[in-house]
Design a protein around this nucleic acid. Structure first.
Length: 238
DNA sequence: AAATGATACAACCGCACATAG
DNA sequence: TCTATGTGCGGTTGTATCATT
């Protein structure tokens, strides 16, 4: 069967966007707002795929984008969030206003990865490269766990993040990374798990003082998730 | 000045998820 | 419940620019 292509490839431009195309796209979205990307190119008079329009808008044309170099604080925050979330660039980007997932992903691959390797830190596990892998730690590598049989792929929905193995409170102080500052931010999926048996919110479990900014026990926010008691699965590792 | 290699980043591709019918 | 469709995400590629020889 297969899916129909997202657009008519024979009649779409590819490659770098011209100034005129940018102008058209911006003008259209200003007039009509975002959404319905599939029909947008035609409506806006663009010979582009809808996905391409969306990407161009989100990554480069949106007015709230912060361009320019990443600050040291942003570097640290990205490293910290990556150690918690892995390659979930969209979640990481949600914590960095004005930055896009694509931008962060590129920055990670070109700068931070190298920086960590230079420091002798594995950019995937965030542990010293020579370190023995026997100690259990957070790993976002799919290969860290044998692939489950197909029938187990659905629930739980994030096989690449074994949340059973505890994102545990940093009983030792984290020397390398500053504490993540937790502020509410709008993200797409919110998971409310009232009554979920856990006790500590994710923020507290990461070592935040209860009641401090980011403690969702009281404030109900962590990593952009408005929650009562956060269900880790709600982090939605898609 | 030209050739070559390295780097940075914009853009594309394919897949998975959400949802409407 | 199933299928089709639209959207979003992450990995990868292509190419422009910079650095080095």
């Amino acid at each position: 069967m297969g899916r129909s292509p997202c657009c008519e490839k024979a009649h779409t431009n590819k490659g770098a966007w011209s100034k005129e195309e940018d102008d058209r796209l911006v003008a259209y979205i200003r007039a009509h707002g975002e959404g319905c990307w599939r029909s947008l190119p035609k409506a806006a008079g663009l010979l582009r795929c809808g996905k391409s329009c969306r990407l161009r808008w989100i990554n480069y044309l949106r007015p709230d984008l912060k361009r320019g170099n990443f600050t040291a604080d942003e570097d640290d925050l990205i490293i910290k969030l990556h150690s918690l979330l892995g390659n979930k660039w969209s979640l990481i980007a949600a914590r960095l206003p004005g930055r896009t997932d694509n931008e962060i992903k590129n920055y990670w691959n070109t700068h931070i990865r190298r920086k960590l390797i230079g420091r002798g830190i594995d950019p995937v596990t965030h542990r010293p490269i020579a370190d023995d892998a026997s100690n259990v730690t957070i790993s976002f590598q799919p290969d860290a766990h044998p692939p489950p049989p197909p029938q187990q792929l659905k629930p739980p929905r994030c096989p690449d993040l074994n949340l059973d193995l505890c994102i545990s409170p940093p009983c030792h102080q984290e020397e390398d990374h500053p504490q993540v500052e937790l502020k509410p931010v709008v993200v797409k999926r919110e998971v409310l798990q009232a009554g979920h048996g856990g006790g500590l919110c994710f923020g507290c479990s990461l070592g935040l003082q209860q009641g401090a900014a980011g403690c969702s026990c009281i404030n109900s926010h962590f990593l952009g998730l408005r929650v009562g008691i956060l269900d880790f699965r709600g982090l939605e590792m898609k």
